[in-house]
Simulated scan of single mutants.
Amino acid sequence: MTRSSQTVKEAEAQYEELKNNHLESYKKASIICPESDLEALRSCEGSTPEQLSAQLSRLNQRIQRESERYAESIDDLKMLYQKKERKILRRRQTYKSYRDKLNACQKAQELRWNKFQRNATLLKRQLTWRLLGNKGISGHVKVSYEDETLSMEVKMPQDASNNNVRDTRGLSGGERSYSTLCFALALHEMTEAPFRAMDEFDVFMDAVSRKISLDALVDFSLRQGSQWIFITPHDISMVKQGERIRRQQMAAPRS
């Protein structure tokens, strides 16, 4: 073995011994003063021993004063602090969980509100008097969800002034009945029900309007596929019976 090799081995042995001594000294020092306490004293770096001694005296005096104010020891206060800290952490986690749920609910509510707005707009469009065209009448319904009002405009074919009637009192009895019937059918078309009934729908109508109304009701009911019951005191002989149409006429009252 050469001299240089022996020197290297001795240096390695000394390094290992110093390393072990450093670890042992570190463990002993940690028992006296934990490393966390040293990190709290980083602001004292560069201070002289006299300054550190004065600061230590001030800290001891403060500890003494605080000890006189509270019956608990420092260890008890540390445990209480850690307990409160864990409680605060749990509360923060609970708050975060509730906040996430609240955000999800608000997002769902916003989506449903947007869907409601779209549906409201579509319902306004659907609520139109399509059947008025059978008599050459044009009209539509204006719905205000904000004011909770419903208004209508009707234009009769014989009106040369091109003015729209905004009040049903401006229509004749038959025209008002037929307009009301068309409005009711528009509502029926927007809803679903297995059974529907209409009583005296042709009041104040003349024979021509009554036939148009009956034809419109029969076509509409057959197209809807639900069961309808129409009650009228007038003649219904113009309605043809079929597989899905039945007529029932009651006997005339006795005098």
Score class of each variant (00 low, 15 high):
56 L>E: 13
64 Q>F: 09
100 D>P: 02
69 R>E: 11
106 Q>V: 08
71 A>F: 10
81 Y>F: 05
74 I>N: 15
50 E>P: 00
120 A>C: 11
118 R>A: 12
122 L>E: 14
108 A>G: 07
108 A>I: 07
56 L>P: 00
66 E>A: 01
34 P>H: 15
77 L>D: 04
104 A>K: 11
22 H>M: 10
64 Q>V: 03
65 R>A: 08
67 S>P: 00
88 I>G: 00
99 R>M: 04
23 L>V: 15
103 N>E: 15
35 E>W: 00
84 K>T: 06
38 L>Y: 14
112 R>A: 09
55 Q>F: 06
46 G>L: 10
23 L>C: 03
25 S>I: 09
80 L>M: 13
96 K>V: 13
119 N>A: 05
39 E>A: 08
51 Q>T: 06
111 L>Y: 08
74 I>P: 00
93 Q>E: 04
79 M>V: 12
66 E>P: 00
30 S>V: 01
89 L>H: 04
99 R>A: 04
85 E>L: 05
104 A>N: 09
50 E>G: 02
109 Q>E: 10
94 T>S: 14
99 R>W: 12
58 R>A: 06
44 C>F: 11
83 K>I: 07
107 K>I: 03
108 A>S: 03
50 E>V: 13
29 A>R: 11
58 R>D: 10
85 E>F: 12
114 N>M: 12
69 R>C: 08
41 L>F: 03
86 R>V: 04
55 Q>K: 14
91 R>H: 06
81 Y>N: 08
